[in-house]
Structures are given as structure tokens and as C-alpha cells.
Design a protein around this nucleic acid. Structure first.
Lengths: 189, 189
DNA sequence: GTCTATATTACGATAGAC
DNA sequence: GTCTATCGTAATATAGAC
């Protein structure tokens, strides 16, 4: 055959990665299928050979994105408090706010998962629980992990919606301090 | 004239309210202009007599929605700690997660503001800062206000994206406890 | 597997009658 | 001010050549 299984896998991977970037920046529903495929240098017809529907692409894309975020925090040394604080500061940075296409998918796309069919939400939930476990290693308790996740995701999303950088900084800074308190409190015990 | 200024104002108000409900449930960009107008019992042609464009409607709708949330927390007695905790519990309830059309606009629509033109974000920011001030009365400090807002909005959004009610409860409960700690800490001083 | 071309539907916005 | 009708455009998805 002209195309090997490896080449197909590679094309699928590139499709997931590139359409993920595009969706995080412009929204998934708001992105046309042609734009999603075009981001990977492909065309509509080709995309539909890899995914049965736009929703099918969304499911795979979301899982890949959240897993990527989870593995990022899984690689942080849980013993190293300074490393945990640094990872938090990176998430709650102005750079993250300004570059959604390179950042975490949750502030950009979680709301679209909420409106997606049960199947999508089921796959998403599995990935999200894995991310929570990664955070729990750094945050100490499950409660701290959920709180850290919710406030970080909320802060980045709200900061992106604001118009002026000064206020974005204020919000990020406030949540950063609260998050640090949370991390330190769990380690003081 | 056949239509008085009051009737026009009333129609505009109903349009804002009904399209707000619809947008919170299904997303603003994902909602057709006909569906937005239809939610208020009107038609497209009529909507365009009140708003110059779909984006113009979004700006007005967002401001009205956030102001509504802000006034809700402005009416809570800042002296009454139990009342503040109760308001927080109501926001972080399963009922709120299950009924986005009747709830706060932030978990549903903030991400769309982030992708909207500068003009929209500017108006949004003004309303959001007023909401922050309302929360600051209850939370004590500005830092606690931003944190409370970010984690509550994030928690509701993430809970809505999850598939099973048990995990939704876990997340809401965790953030509720953290929020209560935040409120109590600010009042212990 | 990738492409171009197309079928079909829905979108945002406008025009004109009442 | 509200309605129906309509103009362009862009959407999702499929068909068929290579």
C-alpha cells in the first residue's frame, strides 16, 4: 500500500495537535471543519478519513489535550515545594493568558464539553480525573487539588475576558497567592 | 405613534433577558440570531431594530447578566457570615450546575467574551470589577474576592463538563469547603 | 490517504409591506 | 416596531478522481 499504518498515525496525531491549537484559540464550535483541517495542512476530505464526524474529532482532541496538561504536572517532583509553586505560577502567568493556543485546554474548551453529548463528557471526565490525581500529588489532598484546578482554570479564563492588562495582572496575582497558600498549607502538616 | 418609548424599552429588556437565557444554555456564538430572537417571542427583523449587530446584542446581554449577578451578591448582608456562606453554597450547588440558563453568565459565556472584540471586553470588564467589589464586601480582601470568584466560576464550569453526578458533587463540595475557609479566615482577623 | 467539487442546510444581515 | 421574504456566504458532510 502507498500509505503505511505509521504514516496514518502520524497524520492523525498532527491533525489532533494542530486542530487542538486552533480550537483553543478560536473555540471548537466556532471553527469550521475546513479551518481545523487546514491548521494541520490538510483538507476537509482528508480529515473525514480519520474522524467520523466533527464531534468525534472533538472527543479525541479533548482527551489528548487534557492528557498533555496532566502529564505536565505529573512530571513535577512532588517532594519539591518550590517546583510545585513554580508550576502554579507558570499556569497563572500573563504569558499563558496571552497564548491560549499553546496553553491548557480547560479555560478555552471546558465550556464546550459541557454542551457536548454524553459520550464526549464521559471521555473528558476520565482525563480530568487523571489530571486531578496529578495535582493531588502536588497539592496534598483531593480537596486542595480540585480547588487549585478550579481557581486556576477560572482565573485564566476570566483574565482572558478582561480588556486591560493591569486588571488581568491583579486577578492572576491574587489567585497565585491563594494557590501558594494552599500548597504550603498542605505541606505544613 | 403606535409604539411608545416604554414599549420599546420593554421589548429590548425582554430581548436581553430571553436571549441571555438561551445563550447561557447553548452558547452565544453557537446560537443563531433567529433562535436568540425566537427565545423572546420575536423574529430576526425585529431584533435588528433594537441591536445593530449580533455583537452589539452580546455586549448589552453580557453587561446585563453580570450586573444581575453582582446585584445578587450586593444584597447579601456583609455583617452576616452565615448569609455569605449560604450564598456561596448556592452558587456551588448541583442545581446551579444543572440549570445554566437560570444561573450566572460567567461559567457559560466568559470564554466567548475572551474571543470577542475589544469593545465587548471593555464593557465586560467594567461589570466584572463591580462584581468583584460586591464580593469583596463578603470576602474581606480584594485577593479573597478574586480567588472566590475564580474558583467558583471554574468549579461550576468544570462540573458541567463532567459526565457523572458523583464526581460533580465531589468537585463542588471541595471548592465549597475551600471557599468557606476563605470567608471565615477574612473574618477571623 | 489526499485532493477538488458539490449537495444541502444554516448563518448573519437587509428590504419592504403593514 | 413587527413581520415575511430574500440575498449572499459559510457551515457540515459526502462523492469521486488520483
Amino acid at each position: 500500500m502507498r500509505y503505511t499504518a505509521e504514516q496514518k498515525e502520524e497524520a492523525r496525531h498532527k491533525l489532533l495537535h494542530a486542530s487542538g491549537r486552533h480550537a483553543k484559540a478560536h473555540g471548537f464550535a466556532a471553527s469550521g471543519v475546513d479551518a481545523l483541517a487546514g491548521a494541520a495542512g490538510l483538507t476537509i476530505g482528508s480529515l473525514y478519513k480519520h474522524f467520523a464526524s466533527k464531534n468525534d474529532l472533538f472527543t479525541a482532541l479533548m482527551a489528548a489535550e487534557i492528557d498533555q496538561t496532566a502529564s505536565r504536572y505529573a512530571s513535577v517532583d512532588a517532594q519539591d515545594t518550590a517546583a510545585a509553586v513554580k508550576a502554579l505560577a507558570s499556569y497563572l502567568s500573563l504569558a499563558h493568558v496571552k497564548a491560549p493556543e499553546r496553553g491548557c485546554a480547560l479555560p478555552s474548551l471546558a465550556v464546550e464539553v459541557a454542551r457536548a453529548p454524553e459520550e464526549v463528557r464521559q471521555v473528558f471526565e476520565t482525563s480530568l480525573l487523571a489530571l486531578k490525581d496529578s495535582l493531588q500529588r502536588l497539592a496534598g489532598s483531593e480537596q486542595a487539588a480540585w480547588t487549585l484546578m478550579a481557581q486556576s482554570v477560572g482565573a485564566v479564563m476570566l483574565a482572558r475576558a478582561m480588556a486591560t492588562e493591569t486588571h488581568q495582572r491583579d486577578l492572576l496575582q491574587a489567585v497565585r497567592v491563594s494557590g501558594q497558600d494552599l500548597i504550603h498549607a498542605s505541606r505544613a502538616q
